Simulated assay, not measured.
Amino acid sequence: MEKERLPVTDLSLRHLLEERTDDLQRVKAEYDNYRKQVRRDRMAVREIAVANVLRALLPVLDAVDRTCRHEPITPGLHDIADTLRTQLASLGLQSFGEKGDAFDPAFHDAVAHHVSADAEQLVCTQILRLGYQVGEHLLRPAHVEVVGPPRPDADSQLGHDREI
């Protein structure tokens, strides 16, 4: 529409105007892409910064949890523990690791493995230390004890050990 309103009769001027318009549109598109990339980069930096702060606060959360388990809970301690958990959750901190969870080596560190002929898969039987994540970022795996079936090659290894 803009091109039709301009009373440009010289073809070379019209061509030059079209080139500059195309250049301007291309620069605008590049700038839009740049703004989107900067926004994504800022979000990524924010996620990393939040994950680092949360990872640094995990020992504090562990200490508060241990204290709540082993000491009489006073109103002050209860208030501190609730506030700490609420504020960390508002930053996206999520705990995981419950008795009965299927063992996932990406999220669990097995500290002990007990064999059960009745077990069909590895299952967490005791949570020794909770795991934490924020979004898709694993901050710390859960330390667990697992129960599972005997390994298929366990008998052959035992038999081999006896022969030696």
Results as ranks from 00 to 15, higher is better:
87 Q>C: 13
87 Q>Y: 05
88 L>F: 10
88 L>H: 06
89 A>K: 14
89 A>W: 00
89 A>N: 13
89 A>M: 03
90 S>A: 12
90 S>L: 12
90 S>N: 13
91 L>T: 06
91 L>D: 01
92 G>R: 06
92 G>V: 01
93 L>K: 06
93 L>H: 14
93 L>W: 07
93 L>I: 00
93 L>F: 09
94 Q>S: 14
94 Q>N: 13
94 Q>E: 15
94 Q>V: 11
95 S>P: 03
95 S>A: 15
95 S>D: 14
95 S>N: 11
95 S>W: 00
96 F>S: 06
96 F>K: 02
97 G>M: 04
97 G>T: 01
97 G>R: 05
97 G>F: 07
98 E>V: 02
98 E>L: 10
98 E>C: 03
98 E>T: 12
98 E>W: 01
99 K>S: 11
100 G>K: 05
100 G>M: 03
100 G>N: 06
100 G>Q: 01
100 G>W: 04
100 G>D: 08
100 G>Y: 00
100 G>T: 08
101 D>T: 06
101 D>N: 15
102 A>L: 11
102 A>E: 14
102 A>S: 14
102 A>N: 01
103 F>L: 02
103 F>V: 03
103 F>D: 04
103 F>I: 02
104 D>F: 01
104 D>M: 00
105 P>G: 04
107 F>E: 07
107 F>G: 01
108 H>A: 02
108 H>K: 07
108 H>R: 06
108 H>W: 02
109 D>E: 12
109 D>M: 06
109 D>W: 08
110 A>H: 05
110 A>W: 01
110 A>T: 00
110 A>L: 08
110 A>I: 01
111 V>I: 15
112 A>E: 15
112 A>P: 04
112 A>M: 09
112 A>R: 11
113 H>K: 14
113 H>M: 11
114 H>Y: 09
114 H>W: 08
114 H>S: 12
115 V>N: 04
115 V>F: 10
115 V>W: 07
116 S>Y: 03
116 S>N: 14
116 S>W: 02
116 S>A: 15
117 A>D: 15
117 A>N: 10
117 A>V: 12
118 D>T: 12
118 D>A: 15
118 D>M: 10
119 A>T: 07
120 E>K: 14
120 E>V: 05
120 E>L: 12
121 Q>S: 15
121 Q>F: 00
122 L>R: 12
122 L>Y: 10
123 V>E: 08
123 V>P: 09
123 V>C: 01
124 C>W: 03
124 C>N: 13
124 C>R: 04
124 C>T: 11
125 T>F: 04
125 T>S: 12
125 T>E: 11
125 T>Q: 12
125 T>N: 06
126 Q>A: 10
126 Q>L: 14
126 Q>P: 00
126 Q>V: 12
127 I>D: 07
127 I>M: 13
127 I>Q: 08
127 I>R: 11
127 I>E: 10
